[in-house]
Design a protein around this nucleic acid. Structure first.
Length: 438
RNA sequence: GUGAGCGUAGCUCAGCUGGUAGAGCGCCAGACUGUGGAUCUGGACGUCGCGGGUUCGAACCCCGUCGCUCACCCCA
């Protein structure tokens, strides 16, 4: 039990996004929406809470996520529930549950939202973290893979990112992978003793991960291990060649990394990751791939899928680091009033401005003009409207441009129009231009 | 779950070999009865993370604990 008066702080691995940083988050979300919708994706919102079995069956009951990272608890009726660790399973669940496949064609869906994984927090990794993801359900055509990758690269470019790499691999399918794994295990048995202790353990638990080892001394050994790319069945090989061929056609740069491994069980064929050097140890900014058997695993009809998840926390970090976006949240108008006679006209004017969508601040108590201007300055207001006894009497208010310091008397009746004109088209909303609808 | 580093004012940090706290920024007020951003002057704000130990005396040394950060594992 916590002591009285003890400070209560946010749960470990969760954090508050303060107004200083939310503009950047909004910017990223707006750009994602715009790009996704340009590719004809539509938003889906699924619950944060799901039955535990959903993740056990899709992500894989032996994966780290399921065995030790999920927030799982018993509901009052002793049903086991879990805070979603990822969203692909939920999207596929919804697709099946509502029979979207009956509509025919492919479904292109995107989502935003928080995910939960109980790991030790570090840079770019949180227990509540945010993903922006998209899924295409209903076809295994390689062009889908390509189109989605093209879309992702466009999004990153739109956000001003330069330092990123698209890493590509194929992990085969249930037809070719088991055989490959057998070969890999066999090869590992022969060289195991030359590897680091971590890899010796991985050779048992998850042989694919050995390929991903970063220990310098292990590299010569790892390079001689068989890669799955050389052991794909003909269908998987053809699919992969199609994807890379079309990426070339579209001018999307990529790097084939035969050692790229994903941690979720449901992946088949194409897998990929986009990394950024600006991120520290957790350099995977987003990842995804194809999951052709997932729908069946969840009791649905055959419905091949391809998707990705962007780590929004990490994306925001790189956008910050690359300093491509300077966010300002300028206020359009500050209304300064002095004297009781000015109060009502000032309040009425502020209301009018706000109804026009012009961001406006007004003090709720009377103060010296000097003080008001100080506040207007701190809020970075573009304009200050000064209303005192004289202004009320004459019906002309002082309109001051805070940047230039210029000031003139404007007829109160024409004030809103005058401000609109001064703000110009880009600032109709009174906020930065990023809020323009698509 | 494992390891390392760090917890001093709202923020960034200083504080020599132990003598009960300082700077810059920010904040508030004034110089300037209705004109901001500069300058100057003054002011408020600290259980030195918490608990225990050593000591005449602890922000400083020791032990424990909590928190944060980074890394491992794994992933977004």
């Amino acid at each position: 039990m916590s002591k009285k008066n003890e400070l209560i702080q946010s749960v470990k691995g969760t954090r508050d996004l303060l107004p200083g940083e939310t503009p950047l988050w909004q910017r990223v979300e707006e750009e994602a929406r715009r790009v996704f919708e340009a590719y004809n994706f539509r938003e889906i919102r699924t619950p944060i809470l799901e039955q535990t079995a959903l993740f056990a069956r899709s992500v894989g009951s032996d994966t780290d996520i399921v065995t030790k990272e999920m927030y799982t608890f018993e509901d009052r009726d002793s049903e086991s529930l879990t805070l979603r660790p990822e969203a692909t399973a939920s999207v596929v669940r919804a697709y099946i549950e509502h029979g979207l496949y009956n509509e025919g064609g492919v479904h292109k869906l995107y989502y935003f939202g928080p995910m939960f994984r109980r790991e030790r927090p570090q840079k770019g990794r949180y227990r509540q973290f945010y993903q922006i993801g998209a899924e295409v359900l209903g076809s295994d055509h390689p062009t889908i893979d390509t189109e989605v990758l093209e879309m992702l690269v466009l999004l990153l470019e739109r956000l001003g990112l330069k330092e990123f790499k698209l890493l590509l691999n194929s992990v085969g399918c249930p037809k070719c992978r088991p055989e490959y794994l057998k070969k890999l295990r066999h090869a590992l048995d022969a060289v195991k003793t030359k590897l680091c202790t971590d890899c010796q353990r991985r050779a048992q638990t998850n042989p694919l991960r050995v390929l991903d080892c970063k220990v310098e001394a292990d590299q010569p050994v790892i390079e001689k291990l068989p890669y799955i790319l050389d052991h794909l069945c003909s269908e998987c090989r053809q699919h992969f060649e199609c994807v890379t061929g079309e990426l070339d056609e579209r001018g999307v740069a990529y790097e084939i990394v035969p050692r790229l491994v994903r941690g979720l069980d449901y992946y088949t064929r194409t897998t990929f990751e986009i990394t950024s050097g600006l991120l520290g140890a957790q350099n995977a900014m987003l990842g995804g791939g194809r999951y052709d058997g997932l729908s069946e695993m969840l009791g649905g009809p055959p419905a091949p899928g391809f998707g990705f998840a962007i780590g929004q926390d990490r994306l925001v970090l790189t956008v910050e680091e690359s300093a491509a976006l300077k966010m300002k949240a300028p206020l359009a108008v500050y209304v300064a009033w002095m004297g009781e006679a000015a109060r009502e006209p000032a309040v009425r004017l502020a209301c009018q401005l706000r109804r026009e969508g012009i961001s406006t601040e007004i003090s709720f108590q009377q103060m010296k003009l000097k003080k008001s201007l100080g506040i207007a300055n701190k809020l970075q207001a573009r304009h200050t409207i000064i209303i005192g006894e004289e202004e009320v009497a004459s019906g002309h208010y002082q309109l001051k441009d805070m940047e230039t310091g210029e000031q003139r008397a404007v007829d109160a009746v024409q004030l809103v129009a005058a401000i609109k004109e001064k703000l110009g088209e880009t600032f109709q909303s009174g906020r930065a231009p990023s809020s323009q609808a698509k």
